[in-house]
Nucleic acid binder design. Sequence first.
DNA 1: TCCACCATGTAACTGGTTACATGATTAC
DNA 2: GTAATCATGTAACCAGTTACATGGTGGA
Lengths: 199, 199
Amino acid sequence: MATQDTSVLGFALLGLIHQKPSSGYDLRKTFAETAIGNYSSSPGAIYPGLERLESRGLIRGVVEDSAGLRRRRLYRLTSKGGAELKRWLARPIEPGDVTRGAQELMLRFSFMDQASGTDATIAFLTSFRDALKSYVSGLESYLRDNAPKMTLSGRLALECGVRGYRSMHDWANYAISGYRDSRIQSTSRSAKNREGGPR
Amino acid sequence: MATQDTSVLGFALLGLIHQKPSSGYDLRKTFAETAIGNYSSSPGAIYPGLERLESRGLIRGVVEDSAGLRRRRLYRLTSKGGAELKRWLARPIEPGDVTRGAQELMLRFSFMDQASGTDATIAFLTSFRDALKSYVSGLESYLRDNAPKMTLSGRLALECGVRGYRSMHDWANYAISGYRDSRIQSTSRSAKNREGGPR
DNA sequence: TCCACCATGTAACTGGTTACATGATTAC
DNA sequence: GTAATCATGTAACCAGTTACATGGTGGA
C-alpha cells in the first residue's frame, strides 16, 4: 500500500512545519532567504507540495483570519505527519546515501534535535561520520589509481570533492563533541539524568 | 529565438563527448561509476538527453559497427556544440551562482582545461574564489546574528555549510597555484611566454 | 488613487524516474 | 543452451519551473 513516499521537499516542509506551524508563504520565505538547501521556494512547488502532504493526512491547514490580515492557511503536523517525520529522521544511513546527497542527510540532521533525542542525534552523527570516512577513502584510492590518466582540472575537481567530504567528516566529530557537551551541561555534573532535558 | 537552453545534464554530456566521442552506454557508465556529480545515469535520462542535443545540432551520432559488436551510436560534438560548450565554460560567475549550485561551477571547471586555456581557467578560479569568499562571509554574519535564535542542530548544520564553502575557497587557491605551476613548467623559466601554450 | 507587498493559487511545459522491452554478443 | 553483459530504447508518471492570475491590505 504505502500510498506513496514523501519527497525530500516534502520532508523539508514537514520538518519546518514541525518547528513552527506555517503558511505556504512563510515556507516560501524560509526557502528563499535561508541557506536551508536549494529547495524550490516557487509557489508552483510549495503549494502543490503542501496539498500533497495534506491529501495524505500528514499535515492539516486551517485558515486563520484573526487579525485584519488576509486569510492565511496555517499548516500543522498531524500525528501521522509527526510519525512520518520521525521515521525519516530515524532511518539508518545506508552506504550510498552519502554519495548521492549528503544534502538530504544534513537536512535530516538540522531537524533532529527538535524531534529526536540527543542520543539519537549523536548516533546519527557517528554513523554519518563513519560513512563519510569510508566514502572519502574510496575517493582517495580512486584518485591514487587514476590521477595519471586524468586531466589537471578533472583531478583538481575530484580533490575538491575529497576536501569537501573530509571537512564534513571533521565537522561531524566537532558536532558530536558539541552534543556531548550539551548533555553534560543539561545533566549538570550529577548522576541523575532522567532522559528528556530542556524541551 | 535561441531554440531553448541547455540543461546542466546537457552540458555534462557535451563536456564528456568533447573529451572523448562516446555512446549513450559509455556516458551512462561514466555517470554511474565516477563521482562526476549526481547526474542521471538512467537510460530514460541519457538517451532522450542525447536526442535533444542532436535535434538541436549540437552533437551528431554515427552508428559504428566496425568490430563484430552490436551497433553503437557514437556521438561527437559538432562545431555548434563546441561553441555552446565554450560559451558555457566562459560564462561569468554571477552572485548567486555559488548559492544554488557550486556543483555546476565545479562541473564547468572540470571540463575547462580541455576547452579553455590556462589563463581563462585561472581567471575562472579567481572569480570563483572571490564569490566563495563573499558567500562565506555572508553566511558567517548570518550565523553571528542568528545563532542565539537557532536550534543546536540548525546552527551546527549551518556551520557545516560554512566549513564546506571555506574548504572550497581554500581549494580554489590551491588549484590556482597548481595552474600557475603548470604554466611555469610549460614556459620553462624564460621570459617569452606567448599566450596559448601546449594544445 | 496607486503602489508595494502579503498571500494563494493555476496552467503549460520540461525533464527526470522507474520500470519495462528488446536484441545482439560473448563466455561458460 | 543459457547466463551475463553490451547497448538502445520507450512509456507512464511525477515533480518542479516559469509565468501568469487574483485579490486583500496598508501606507504615501
